[in-house]
Design a protein around this nucleic acid. Structure first.
Lengths: 200, 200
DNA sequence: GCGTTTTCCGGTCAGCCGTAATATGTCAAC
DNA sequence: GTTGACATATTACGGCTGACCGGAAAACGC
């Protein structure tokens, strides 16, 4: 029998190396060779675990998405039970925006992924489904908040969901250093507090 | 004397060809040769007008930014005098989001530019300054709105500005087909109307 | 016509790319 | 200790890239 190697762990190691390359040098530099070097293995070894570069990218993005979900779940578990929807949404947004190192890594992966998805039918479908799933999650929270009386029934859940997701638009401002992470958090808290107050 | 060619016009023609390539195939495919073919000239001719690929990209982005400003100015001129700040901001946002063909073209150019700027010190400074300039424009409108009584003085102009710019976060939702352009407009109008109402 | 200058073309070059084919290493089972 | 399957490394190939260069073509003053 062969040398025992944990296939999934190896793939995740390579994926993390890919993350670092994407974060530090951009997805254009994330060649098979560059990722292999970053991971400290030969590019032939990378080929052994990913038949093509695209397969590697897709895995790395899915893995990044899963890690983001994990971080959100961790943050949510620290909340009361049941958690206030405002706090729930706050955790999700802070993990989606590049406000701390891990989140920045996954945020940049997502950004690069979306941009590539615009010109690749396969990636487009995957990205759309992933985003639509996130949208549904948020919308469910919004609807529950309305049902629980945290939110005025005047609010259209769909529109409110879109506006909440739009807050990820703070990303370029933070990434380019136009605003500080603290200012982004201030804006988010301002928005969420206003949303869950009795105001219009 | 040389053959008479309008240098600027030629460069703009090439820039528009670059836009088309970026929009349809992505910035990674925007090689000198590809852009030349799209423009219907030889790659040697492109080199004559742009010494390097980067110079071509920077020009194309600046040109795209200028064209966006032009569209905004056109839209604003159709408003009353003085225009209501809500309408002013609405025009800016509709030209920043990919809600119609021209806006989608420039939006995609900006997105690709920002992503590259994250890993290039030179582009980073240029992009940051450009975005900061836009931020200042919006902030001036917000402050004027407060001064004119359109907005409650309780609002922090900086935070409100950040939230308005964050609305560009609807871009991925529209681009990936998760929401329709009409839904994006609905969200924007909802947000702006709420902002300029007497609510909290 | 001549000379100058700009414009444009096509080829060349070294370098990186993804991928495939090949070779070597490693270890468990028999 | 031989075998065989899998892990890893090496090498090779065809293609595309950006940058560069020499020269042709065109337009103008003289």
């Amino acid at each position: 029998m062969p040398k025992q190697v944990d296939h999934r762990e190896r793939r995740e190691t390579i994926a993390r190396a890919l993350w670092r390359v994407v974060e530090q040098r951009g997805i254009a530099q994330a060649s098979v060779r560059e990722v292999a070097q970053e991971a400290g293995i030969s590019h032939g070894a990378v080929q052994h675990y990913f038949a093509t570069r695209e397969e590697m990218l897709v895995f790395a993005v899915d893995f990044a998405s899963a890690q983001t979900s994990l971080r959100v779940a961790e943050g949510v578990s620290a909340l009361g039970d049941p958690p206030h929807p405002r706090d729930l949404l706050r955790v999700m947004l802070t993990e989606l925006l590049p406000l701390h190192p891990d989140a920045r890594t996954t945020s940049r992966m997502s950004a690069a992924y979306v941009l590539e998805a615009l010109h690749d039918a396969n990636l487009h479908a995957r990205a759309r489904d992933g985003l639509a799933h996130g949208r549904d999650l948020v919308e469910r929270i919004v609807r529950q908040a309305v049902a629980d009386g945290h939110l005025s029934p005047d609010r259209d859940p769909a529109t409110e969901t879109h506006l909440l997701l739009a807050l990820t638009g703070l990303t370029p401002l933070v990434e380019l250093g136009v605003i500080e992470p603290r200012e982004a958090l201030t804006a988010i808290d301002q928005y969420l507090n206003r949303l869950f107050s009795k105001g219009t």
